[in-house]
């Protein structure tokens, strides 16, 4: 019986001919659109996550506290809400890291009469403190410390990145959904053609007592095959596109958003794409079922 169902489904695909091909192409297009935006938004998402982790707020101090004062000051800072961690940077340490940055030009710093760099506290906010609002509030709290001279840092631009990511995901979903709708309707049309082409077979099957499953499953299956085929083609197109685009995009990404690699879909992502294709196709096949007197 399984052999029969699969054989009939393939026969049905041949019968639907060009319309089935259109359905497959439309499914491919809709999934490629979804996939492209998905990949882009996924990579932007990684950048956002990475930058969220890297959000730091620097509190420059009016004067360098004595070593005895540091622990009490740090304790007060760590006790503030939304502070995940804090590190004290003494004037000497600040100068040392400046010299490290300057490298072979470090001699310039040696010529300074005194160390011009202030002591500071490097604050790592919690996740809540890394949002624009959270960071704003935290900056105010830190600025209110009597020792604070100036507070630098913020999270607005990370949020702007995350906004772009959401926008991209929404556009992708919109285009994908529109094309998916067209794909479903095309599968429905091709299935309706199949129903018409096999109406004599269906009649005989009903009259000789074939189980409902044998009558309906091939229809569902041929839709599913169209969907799966479309999804496979989409996956292939996406992989080829990624392979070609990555060498161009990666230097750009590394410069702008600080993420050096354009990641492709993860294996669960690929499975999801295939399942989405199969689902689209089966749904289209199922929609056609009621239309022409199968019942």
């Amino acid at each position: 019986m399984l052999g029969f169902v699969v054989g009939e489904a393939l026969r049905d695909l041949r019968r639907a001919g060009r319309v089935a091909v259109s359905a497959v192409v439309l499914i491919t297009l809709s999934l490629v659109a979804l996939g492209v935006f998905w990949v882009l938004s996924f990579n932007l998402g990684r950048a956002v996550a990475e930058w969220r982790d890297r959000v730091r707020i620097i509190v420059y101090l009016k004067r360098e506290p004595s070593p005895a004062e540091v622990p009490a000051l740090m304790q007060r800072v760590r006790a503030l809400p939304d502070v995940a961690g804090a590190r004290y940077v003494a004037k000497a340490e600040a100068l040392a890291s400046l010299k490290r940055v300057l490298g072979k030009d470090a001699g310039v710093a040696d010529q300074l009469p005194s160390n011009p760099l202030p002591a500071s506290i490097e604050v790592t906010p919690t996740a809540a403190g890394a949002t624009p609002d959270g960071a704003g509030a935290l900056i105010q709290r830190l600025a209110a410390l009597p020792e604070a001279d100036e507070v630098a840092g913020g999270a607005e631009w990370v949020e702007r990145l995350s906004h772009w990511q959401r926008l991209l995901a929404t556009i992708g979903l919109g285009i994908g959904a529109t094309l998916a709708l067209a794909a479903i309707l095309t599968v429905t049309t091709s299935t309706t053609l199949v129903l018409h082409a096999r109406r004599h077979e269906t009649e005989i099957m009903r009259l000789v007592g074939a189980p409902e499953a044998a009558i309906r499953l091939p229809l569902l299956l041929q839709g599913l095959v169209q969907g799966l085929l479309g999804a496979l083609l989409a996956l292939l197109a996406l992989a080829v596109g990624h392979h070609l685009a990555a060498p161009w995009l990666e230097p750009l990404m590394s410069l702008t958003i600080g993420v050096p690699r354009l990641e492709f879909l993860t294996p669960p992502g690929m499975v999801t794409l295939l399942a989405a294709g199969a689902g689209l196709g089966a749904f289209g096949g199922w929609l056609a079922r009621g239309r022409r007197g199968l019942a």
Binding site: E203, R206, V208, G209
Partner: peptide
Amino acid sequence: SRAKVQTLRRSIGVVFQDAKLLP
């Protein structure tokens, strides 16, 4: 029920007046 109708039909051989051979 619909399923029982199919079961019943499997026990009946029918020669239709219009033959209904698949062309």
